[in-house]
Each structure stands twice: as C-alpha cells, then as structure tokens.
Design a binder for these strands. Structure first.
Lengths: 259, 259
DNA sequence: CGAGGGGTTGATCTCCTTCAACGGAGGTGG
DNA sequence: CCACCTCCGTTGAAGGAGATCAACCCCTCG
C-alpha cells in the first residue's frame, strides 16, 4: 500500500512529542487507510455528521472551520502535512466543526476502529494520541489569545511565525522561506480580519522589510522583528520540550507485566 | 479522606461523555489528592513551570489565561466545579498557560502519576481522559469562532449561554438563573473586550429584557433570544451526544481477554 | 472617615470594516 | 489569437464598533 510513506509523516509527528517504541511504530505504520484527493475549497469533512474515520493530511493545506449562521466563517486550526487533523474525532465522532481543503490536498482516511484498537493495545500510543490532542488544544488556546488581545499586525505576524516554525519542522522549507499557497481571504479567515485589511497589513510588513508574501511564497526577511511584533514564543507548540520520557518508559516497562 | 465527594464531581463529568464501568469509577474515586484554597486573583498554576499534578476545581471559578508581554491577558477557558482544568498537563506537564482563581476557589491537586497509572491500567479511563481533553478543545475552537467573527453583543451572549448551560448541567442553578461572581473586567478578559464595553453591552441586553447580570447573579430573561443573539448551539459542548458506547463496551469486553 | 474596588457615563479617537472600483494574471471559447 | 471572464490583489473613501481616557458614584471594609 502506497500509504505507508504518508503514515510515516504522522508517526514522525507523534514521535516528536512522544517517544514511541519500535513495536508501536510498526503498528502505526501497518494501519490500513484510504487515500483521497480534494480540490481547494472542497469539504474534506462536513459539519454535523458522525464520522468513523480520521483524516491525515498528506499534501496540501486544510483548515478546520467554525461556521456562523450568517455565513461568516473562522478558521480555528490550520493543518499541514503529517497532521491527523481530526484525531480527536476518534473519541468525539460527531463533528461540530468542518474540515476544508484550503489548497489542492491529498489525505488518508484512517478508520477510527484501527486507531481505537491501537490505543487499547498500546497504552503508549493512547498517550501519544491524547498528547497530540492536547498539543492541538494548546494551539487553539494561543489563537484565542491572539484574536482576543492582539491587533491585526500582531495576528498576521503570529500566524506567519507559527506556520514558518511548523513548516520547518516537517521539512517543507525553512522558517525564512516556505510555500504557503493561501489567498489573502483565507488568511483573513484565520486571523479574524477581512481580506482588505489583511492586504494592508501585509503591505505594512512588506514595507518595513519584515515579511514578504507574494505569489504563494512567504519570505521572512526579519525573523526577530516578526517574532517581536507577534509576541511569539514557540513553547506552546509543544514540539520538543513536552516529551515525558519518565512516563513513556514506565508505560513500556509495565506493559508486559501489569496489564 | 474528604476529597471523595469532590472527586465524584469529576467522575460525574467524565461519565457524562464516557460510560465508565464500576471498576473504573471506583478506581477514580480512590485517587489520593491534596486539597487547597485560593483567594480570587491568585495563581493556582503559574505559567512556565513543569507541574506534576493536575488541578480539579471543587468550588469557585478558575480561568486559564494567556498572558501577553505587555500585560494584556485573555481568558482561554473558564472552569467550573468538577472540571479537571488542566487534565492535559498529564501528557503535557510544561505549562504555557496559567490557571488563576477568578473567585475564591477550592481545588484538589491530583498527582499525574496516579492519573497515568489509571490510564494505563484502564484503557476506558484513558479514553475518557482523552475525550475530556477533546471536549475542552472543542470549546476552545468555539471561542476562536466567537472572537474572530462575532461582535461584542454576540460574544457576551454566547459566554452566558455556554456558562448557563454548563452550570445547569453540574447542578449549580438553572440555565435561567445562576450565580456568577465575576466582575465585568473578568468578563472582558474572557470576551476579548474592555470592561467599559462589557458594561455597555450588558446594559443593552438588560434593556431588551434578555439578560440581567447584577450583584454576581445572572438571570436569563429570554433564553431563546439570547441563543439567537449568540448563535449558540450546545452541540460543541459534547455533553450528551458524544458518547461512544460501541467502543467503550468493546474496550471493556477486551480488557480481561486481550491485554 | 478615608481608601479602594467595581459599576456607570461621556467624549474622543482609531483601528478595522464596508463598499466600490480597478488592474493584472490565468483560463476558456470563439 | 484575441475577447472575455473570473479570481485575486490593490486602492480609496466613508462609516462604525469598540478602545481609551477620565470622571463620578456607590458600596464595603479597614
């Protein structure tokens, strides 16, 4: 199955915050899953359904959306390749959100059943899944802070800092330069602004030689300045610091004995 | 130990979204934990530390805060009695957030070690913990939508809808009438507004006989109207609908045999 | 009695929205 | 190959929602 390669990206993500044993890793990679393609602006997971599979981003960009009655929409999370963007649906199969392809996107659908089976069989994996959901939540919390208490410039700057950081982490470009094929309207959906104001804000950042974002490419000209403007601190991403090896090893040690 | 009674509230919360077996329930209630009291505005969990215990709210109100460099602050989550407000710290012991008592609050500190042990021993509990974190994240996502795309009136209305709903659920008042000893400044911290504007917004809601909030008491005079203004839909709270019994029972069935 | 915290009010300012128009790039069909 | 259309970025002008600043009131508490 071709999907092995793509599952590896997810495994790598988990392994970044949770140490996985070889056995756990192998079990992860053996999950069977269904590949699918989506054009930009297509719903990958519609709202208000009950789903029986989670969705792993292989290529492209996907957004989790909160939709208002009047048609306004807000991106609540941005998902890059390797993200299992609704891993939480395993424990919460009724969707109150919707996941939409923001660019042409290819995904793998992974049955909940498989993920549940792994979580029961391997407590270390259950912890890793839980931790992944917690990491996701930490990003959500940070976005609340940004939307609630920062102006347009800081919000846009923060989005670019975060995305640059994550892109570098998964090996898609560097934090100074990476592809980001989003329209200004999509950036607006993510920052709680209008497309017009995102435009003006980007111009401001461009004029001060801080950030240039043109033809789907982000070039961060002055990283320190951007971080300063955004009040960005990568800690919340929980990408390297949050390992909890003492528990992971004890989990493994206890597995053959205790359970 | 006095704490049994208080742990029961948390168990009830879990049981609301995850079916627990008697054995799991008993194990939960047997956790040992340390009671503590906090005055309003005291940090229960400071930011930028590594913690080895989670924090269960027994009485009072606590807020999770995101703090900006310049001193601005944003509440990212509001925690009511029965909430284990940083359950996610079990898998993510480094705090990027801070938890502060918003009123006089009594809490129980529960060692991560105990929670981890339970999660390993009982996959059903591990799932319940994971689901609790997911439910928490769903609220965070909804708040992002509110902050990003709704005006002051809708934000305030939504906060009251959500809180009324949750209060009723845990048996502290009804959705029409409940105690909420928060200042307008604290409401402002939660809605991304200023205290002055919260004041004017509340006046507007009071004048239209929708909501009255005075001397620490919320009276929702017109629930339907408030829901309409807030664009509130309780689905995201995942309080009754998200049970996943098919898995829970299979987990239990497999426990004695499989693991 | 004085101090301080919280609610209320008014005046002013500003950031962002809204609306509208235009231009360029890319795609399509005659 | 050009006409046309659509999408996206850009610009300008006007309006509005909410912030900011400052004052005042009331209540509680030392």
């Amino acid at each position: 199955m071709i999907s092995n390669n793509s599952l590896a990206r997810f495994a790598a993500r988990l392994n970044r915050h949770s140490l996985l044993s070889n056995e756990e890793l192998q079990a992860l990679l053996k999950m069977c899953c269904l590949p699918a393609q989506f054009q930009a602006r297509r719903d990958i997971v519609p709202t208000n359904k009950t789903v029986d599979h989670a969705c792993l981003i292989v290529e492209g960009l996907a957004g989790r959306f909160d939709l208002m009655r009047d048609g306004r929409r807000q991106v609540t999370a941005l998902h890059l390749p390797g993200d299992m963007c609704d891993l939480h649906s395993v424990v919460q199969p009724h969707t109150a959100w919707s996941i939409t392809a923001m660019t042409a996107t290819s995904v793998l659908f992974v049955p909940h059943e498989d993920l549940q089976r792994l979580a029961i069989r391997y407590p270390g994996l259950a912890m890793a899944f839980w931790r992944d959901t917690a990491a996701d939540a930490a990003v959500l919390a940070k976005w609340i802070g940004n939307l609630g208490r920062k102006d347009a410039r800081a919000r846009v700057a923060h989005l670019f800092c975060e995305t640059a950081f994550r892109m570098e982490l998964i090996g898609l470009g560097t934090r100074r330069s990476f592809d980001l094929p989003l329209t200004q309207e999509q950036l607006a959906d993510a920052t709680g602004l209008t497309a017009v104001h995102v435009n003006r804000t980007l111009q401001g950042l461009r004029e001060t030689r801080t950030l240039s974002f043109q033809s789907s490419r982000a070039e961060i000209l002055d990283w320190d300045r951007l971080v300063e403007i955004a009040d960005f601190d990568s800690d919340y991403l929980m990408l390297q610091a949050s390992r909890n090896p003492s528990f992971e090893t004890s989990a493994r040690a206890e597995l053959p004995v205790g359970a």
